[in-house]
Design a protein around this nucleic acid. Structure first.
Length: 290
DNA sequence: TAACCGTGGTG
DNA sequence: TCACCAAGGTT
C-alpha cells in the first residue's frame, strides 16, 4: 500500500484491512472483487491484485507465514527491491540495504551535493547506501539493531526534514555535514518529468474502476463505453436507476461518462483493464474478477 | 531503458 | 489554480 502512496492516506485503509484479514490465509481465501473494493481509492489497483496473489503464494508455499529473507520476499508478486529489503529489515531485523525515495534524496544532498537524486536509481546509489550502512556483526544483536535504526532514521529525515519540495534545513541535525548546503544549494540538474493525467488512458481506467467497485455486479459493456454526453447519462435508465444523485455509485457513472474521451480511448482503457485482470468479461457483462 | 500504472494533498 | 510528488513494480 505504501508503494508510491503517502503514509497518511494508507493508514485508515490499512487499519480496516488488517481487521478484516489479519493473516495471509484470510486474504488468500477472499475473492479478488472484495479485495479490489477494499482497496478503495488508494490508487494503482494492480497492487491489490498482487497483494492478493502474494497472500496465496504465502499460504501455499510458506505455510501461511510471511518469509523473512530478501530473496524469498523478492519472489512474491508485487514485491520489488525496496519492499523486500524494507520487510526483511523492519519486520525481521535483517540488516539490509534499504533504498527508497527518501533515502535517495538524503544521500543525493548530504553526500553527493545535488538537489535531487538521479532520475533512475543506479548501481552507484546502491553502493553508496551499502557503504553508509553501519557495519553489523551478526553475532551482536545490538549492531543489527543499529542497521535497522539507520535505515529508519535516514528515511524519516528525508520524509520530515529533507523533503523534496521545500526542505526544512533549519531543523536538520546534520546540516553541518551537508554537501548540498556547502555547495550553496545548487538547483536540480534536470527537470523532473511530470505525469500527465487529464485526457489520459489512466484517467479513463480510474473512472471505470470506480464504476466497477461501486457496482454490486457486472455492468453492460455499452454502458461502460458510453458516449460522453451528460444529458444522455441522466436519461439513461440503467444508470439513472442505479443510484440517486449524490450517491458514490451514481457519481462514478457520471464521472466516467463526463470524461471527454473518444470511443477508441475508452475501448483501449477497458482492454487494458481486462488484460491486467482488474476486470472480467462474462455473459452478464463486465465486472470485477471473482 | 523507459513507459506505464491512480489518487489526493499541497506549495 | 496547477504542477509536483508520494515507503515502487512490472513489462
Amino acid at each position: 500500500m505504501l508503494q508510491q502512496t503517502p503514509v497518511v492516506r494508507v493508514l485508515p485503509v490499512w487499519e480496516t484491512w488488517m481487521e478484516r484479514w489479519p493473516t495471509p490465509a484470510d486474504l488468500a481465501a477472499e475473492p479478488v472483487s472484495e479485495v479490489v473494493r477494499a482497496w478503495g481509492r488508494l490508487g494503482y489497483p494492480r497492487r491489490a491484485l498482487r497483494l492478493h496473489a502474494a497472500a496465496i503464494v504465502i499460504s501455499e508455499q510458506h505455510g501461511g507465514q510471511v518469509p523473512g529473507t530478501e530473496a524469498e520476499l523478492l519472489a512474491l508478486p508485487g514485491v520489488g527491491t525496496y519492499t523486500a529489503a524494507a520487510i526483511a529489515c523492519f519486520a525481521f531485523g535483517v540488516p539490509t540495504v534499504v533504498v527508497d525515495t527518501n533515502i535517495r534524496r538524503v544521500h543525493a544532498r548530504l553526500v553527493s551535493g545535488k538537489a535531487l537524486p538521479e532520475q533512475n536509481q543506479n548501481a552507484a546509489e546502491l553502493a553508496l547506501a551499502a557503504r553508509l550502512l553501519p557495519k553489523s556483526n551478526p553475532q551482536n544483536a545490538g549492531e543489527v539493531a543499529l542497521a535497522n535504526t539507520w535505515n529508519i532514521g535516514v528515511m524519516e529525515l528525508g520524509a520530515l526534514v529533507c523533503t523534496a519540495r521545500s526542505p526544512r534545513c533549519e531543523d536538520c541535525p546534520v546540516i553541518d555535514q551537508c554537501a548540498w548546503i556547502a555547495a550553496g544549494r545548487p538547483e536540480p540538474h534536470y527537470v523532473p518529468k511530470g505525469q500527465p493525467w487529464h485526457g489520459t488512458d489512466r484517467q479513463v481506467r480510474g473512472a471505470m474502476m470506480a464504476v466497477l467497485r461501486h457496482s454490486p455486479g457486472p455492468v453492460k459493456r455499452e454502458d461502460l463505453l458510453g458516449a460522453p454526453d451528460l444529458a444522455a447519462v441522466a436519461s439513461e435508465p440503467r444508470i439513472a436507476a442505479s443510484a440517486r444523485q449524490g450517491d458514490p455509485d451514481h457519481e462514478s457513472w457520471v464521472t466516467l461518462h463526463a470524461l471527454p474521451a473518444l470511443a477508441e480511448q475508452r475501448e483501449r482503457a477497458l482492454d487494458s483493464l481486462l488484460a491486467d485482470g482488474l476486470a472480467q468479461q462474462s455473459a452478464a457483462g463486465i465486472g470485477l474478477p471473482h
